[in-house]
Amino acid sequence: MAGPFTSVYTFYRNGFKAMTVGRTLWKIILIKLIIMFAVLKLFFFPNYLKTNFQTDEQRADHVLEQLSRPAVPNR
């Protein structure tokens, strides 16, 4: 008799094997995740504060500086 882990593995394996439209959907999900994390996040969406400042203290200082500036007309 198969153990619980084997049963779960078999359940998932058979499920994935029997997919029809699901195969296309998984391809779309994977392509989407690759575009999001390997392209967009990496090259276009760096975390501004993490990239430009080393410590939390510096980040806090930067934000406080932004917040401490009085209003001036928009350009």
């Binding site: 975390n47 501004y48 504060l49 980040r59 806090a60 934000v63």
Partner: peptide, 10 residues
Amino acid sequence: GTNWSNYSWM
């Protein structure tokens, strides 16, 4: 993280 970093930090 990129466009709204001040808000995000706060």
